[in-house]
């Protein structure tokens, strides 16, 4: 196995996902299969290859510092599950 149940539970906690015991088992198997598949990359010899930070041969894509119109408050909140008084309302966080 390339991934443990504990690791899946840890990642789920970090992502604020509540998983049942059965789901943890299921995702452990599925993630393991994905990692197994990607492990084929480990066979490549990469010692003499420069590390790449990006897949495209691009650099220095920048914009000028100019203000453009933002969305209206209505538009910003349109997809909010809960909102009040122009704010997104979220559960207590501490």
């Amino acid at each position: 196995m390339r991934i443990t149940r504990e690791q899946v539970e840890h990642v789920a906690m970090l992502a604020r996902l509540e998983l049942s015991g059965q789901e943890v088992g299921e995702y452990t198997r599925q993630l393991d299969a994905i990692l197994e598949y990607a492990a084929v990359l480990e066979e490549l010899k990469t010692e003499e290859i420069e590390p790449t930070a990006h897949v495209m041969p691009l650099m220095n894509v920048m914009r000028e510092d100019s203000v453009r119109a933002s969305l209206s408050q209505d538009q910003v909140l349109r997809n909010a599950p809960d909102a009040e008084n122009g704010f997104f309302r979220v559960p207590k966080i501490v």
Binding site: R63, D65, V67, R68, A69, S70, L71, S72, V76, G86
Partner: peptide, 25 residues
């Protein structure tokens, strides 16, 4: 004048959620 990755204004003290766009959201 504008945010780091989008054109929303950085001005201080404006009404809540009026300097937001799809990029920064």
């Amino acid at each position: 004048k504008s945010k780091i990755f989008c054109g929303c204004s950085t001005e201080f003290g404006r009404e809540q959620n009026t300097q937001v766009c799809p990029v920064c959201e």
